[in-house]
Design a protein around this nucleic acid. Structure first.
Length: 430
RNA sequence: GCAGUCGUCGCAUAGCCUGGUAUUGCGCCGGAUUUGAAAUCCGGUGUCCCCGUGACUCGGGAGUUCAAAUCUCUCCGACUGCGCCA
């Protein structure tokens, strides 16, 4: 959410951003209008309350002095004010609620480096790492590999849960576990502190970190407690500082979280999403940084280079993509994706998303930094990046490391976590 | 899950019974004093707005009342005990 001061004092910045994104300016105008009327109403309400307060104080004084008649007289005077005030309060609240409802839907101000484009075809390649693997045989899709090695059971998962859920089995499940430990250790060596968050959040906290539309298309709700299953560890790891002032000497705060992630993926079905590429539940190792505003762009690059080094160390060939205006969500000011080469699909596909959300989440969550207990402390910036989404990492590894006989070599970096094993063996039962 | 105790400004605390508009300490910020520091003294230290002898604020919400931190209801959270369970 953008600071209201930005609408009041520098609406031209928001307008310019909307123009860049190809959005109409209606909402901006409406928000400014509603804000003005809210402020007018608030002032009028304050005046009425003041009048009432001043009169009511007289009642106490009169009663104390034993002047019952005077007390009754003031009481009669004040009688109507109460009703007038409640009516005015209702109107005032309406204006603010409507203003903020619209404000929630206004996207973050984009960084100037974000390329202009209508959709994902406008994204630009920012770098290429590793060599595209070559095969002396026809490479299989990961979907074929998981079936012939009996590493994933989609059928039984569909039976007991639903489609796009899965059992991971045998050596592939072990490699998933190895990836988690490897990624956490990798980031711990870079001063990230390990955190395991709750996987459910209440609505209030959730609205601080995500776009409202996500509640309809992304989040699973848990009845009857009205909790939401997290879509990524980014959400609890950022929202955990809601309504807090973080001492400045603790910044930048670098966290690495591991959690299951749950996504409904409403409306996104396609032949290109074979196997375990797009699923309702997966595990993700996530980097989070809470920073002072002046440090956040440098730290965004740090997050990216952590990803680059991590994926290079896994020996995966990938591109870095700078996401364009039309492909950017509501929350991020700038976003890089890492896209790994998937031979079976003959395309680069997203494995990492690395965002600087600037003060957009922190404004909603009221996360400040400085001296706790002091007024007007500045708002922090929040950044997040995938380290490894294990389901997609498994796909990338299986496809790039596959062998002619359908087995899969284990990236060297992970072998130590698998007892020195070098090749994933098929699962013995199906 | 049941029962009891409790939730007050960054932290700690008073006020609640008996309704009249949040006390004190620590920390922090500014000033005075000092060669400098400590100590001491003075002032400040929740949010909002049109910045005032302004409005709001005592875990959240609702109610009673002219008036609620204070009374009532409800939800949330913490602690203790019992029960259950990885």
């Amino acid at each position: 959410m953008l600071d209201m001061a930005l609408f009041r004092e520098h609406a031209e910045l928001i307008r310019a951003d909307h123009t860049k994104r190809g959005l109409p300016h209606d909402n901006i105008d409406r928000i400014i209008e509603l804000d003005q009327s809210w402020r007018n109403l608030l002032h009028e309400t304050d005046l009425l309350r003041r009048e009432k307060n001043e009169a009511a104080r007289g009642i106490g004084a009169a009663k104390k002095a034993g002047d019952q008649a005077k007390a009754e007289e003031i009481l009669a005077q004040v009688a109507n004010l109460g009703q007038a005030i409640s009516a005015m309060e209702e109107e005032t609240k309406q204006a603010m609620v409507e203003r903020d409802r619209l404000r929630m839907s206004v996207p973050n101000i984009l960084h100037e480096d974000v390329p202009i484009g209508a959709d994902e075809s406008g994204n630009t390649v920012h770098g290429v790492h590793g060599d595209k693997p070559t095969f002396t045989f026809e490479p299989r899709t990961h979907n074929d590999l998981i079936e012939m090695n009996r590493w994933v059971d989609l059928k039984r998962a569909a039976k007991i849960t639903g489609s796009r859920f899965y059992f991971l089995k045998g050596d592939l499940a072990r490699m998933e576990f190895a990836l988690q430990q490897y990624a956490v250790n990798f980031l711990r060596e870079r001063e990230f502190s390990f955190v395991q968050p709750p996987v459910m959040m209440n609505r209030e906290a959730y609205e601080g970190v995500t776009d409202l539309a996500d509640f309809e298309t992304v989040m699973y709700g848990v009845e009857p407690d009205q909790y939401y299953m997290i879509a990524t560890a980014e959400h609890p790891l950022t929202a955990m500082f809601m309504d807090e002032t973080i001492p400045e000497d603790q910044l930048p705060l670098r966290l690495v979280g591991v959690s299951s992630c749950f996504r409904r993926e409403v409306g996104s079905h396609g032949q290109s999403d074979l196997g375990i590429w797009r699923v309702h539940q997966f595990t993700k190792i996530e980097q989070i940084i809470i920073a002072r505003p002046e440090d956040s762009w440098k730290l965004h690059e740090e997050l990216l280079s952590n990803c680059v080094d991590l994926w290079n160390s896994l020996g995966i060939h990938f591109e870095i993509v700078n996401i364009c205006t039309g492909d950017m969500g509501t929350v991020a000011a700038k976003k890089y994706d890492l896209e790994a080469w998937i031979p079976g699909a003959e395309q680069y596909k997203e494995i990492v998303s690395c965002s600087n959300c600037t003060d957009y989440q922190a404004n909603r969550l009221k996360i400040r930094y400085g001296q706790p207990g002091h007024p007007n402390q500045p708002i922090v910036h929040t950044l997040n990046s995938t380290a490894v989404a294990t389901s997609r990492a498994l796909v990338a590894i299986m496809e790039q490391y596959q062998l002619e006989d359908g087995k899969v070599a284990i990236p060297e970096a992970l072998q130590a976590y698998m007892g020195g094993q070098t090749v994933l063996e098929p699962c013995q039962w199906g």
